[in-house]
């Protein structure tokens, strides 16, 4: 299945994603520079928006990329129920686009944070977390604006609709303040849309896709994503 890996000017995780996806049977990842516009997405069965600094993160992280014409194609695919993942800067772009609720504010520490963290995967089944429900996984984060924020109403619906698949936790799997690396509401690390086919997350599954990188926990998320492109 053709997976479009978007590259905006300033995106810099595209090769990591392409390499991680190439490890997965049935995945045919292609690099799509955003200048190709809608035509670049015409064969896509799924989309990954990688991390980096799209348009230098000028104005606000992800704000400029979110109004590029290619994002109309992302919207169309998401509407069709095709899987879409935004990682780090990709998550920021999806939230700027309004495909996901809320916003990613500056980290509470006001500093860039780059480290390995633990995530508690929610018990509820989602397209992206099959075979890992309720588990404890380890992924790296690297961001300055990963402090997830949303309104009370949005938070209530995220919770009530089981749309928070990933939350920061400690090594023992406890979700508490001390394990929150950036100040996110309720330790939120990743959320999905109402339809369940659009995932945004701050941690980097592609950087934990091979044992040599320190963990291969992230590969399962990407495998689930690839499987979903076949539906």
């Amino acid at each position: 299945m053709v997976i479009a890996v978007l590259r905006f000017p300033g995106t810099n995780n595209e090769n990591d994603i392409l390499r991680a996806l190439s490890l997965i049977d049935g995945a045919n990842p292609i690099l799509v520079p955003s200048r190709k516009g809608l035509a670049g997405l015409k064969d896509a069965d799924g989309i990954v928006i990688p991390g980096g600094f799209s348009y230098g993160d000028y104005l606000r992280a992800g704000a400029v990329a979110s109004v590029e014409s290619i994002t109309e194609g992302v919207r169309d695919l998401a509407e069709d129920g095709k899987p879409v993942i935004g990682i780090c800067n990709g998550f920021q772009i999806l939230s700027e686009m309004g495909l996901l609720p809320g916003a990613l504010l500056s980290n509470e520490s006001a500093r860039f944070v780059c480290k390995w963290i633990y995530l508690r995967v929610s018990d509820n089944a989602t397209m992206f977390t099959e075979r890992m429900e309720g588990s404890l996984i380890r992924l790296p984060i690297a961001h300055a604006e990963g402090n997830y924020y949303c309104s009370d109403d949005e938070f209530d619906s995220l919770k009530d609709e089981f749309r928070i698949p990933f939350r920061y936790c400690n090594e023992a799997g406890e979700v508490d303040d001390s394990a929150n690396p950036n100040g996110s509401i309720d330790n939120i690390a990743g959320i999905i849309n109402q339809k369940g086919n659009v995932l945004g997350l701050m941690p980097h599954p592609e950087r934990a896709s091979r044992a040599v990188l320190g963990s291969s926990d992230g590969l399962v998320i990407l495998e689930n994503f690839v499987r979903a492109t076949k539906c």
Binding site: G10, F53, Y55
Partner: peptide, 8 residues
Amino acid sequence: LSKKIVID
């Protein structure tokens, strides 16, 4: 940002 565009 320009440097990354030049690299690509």
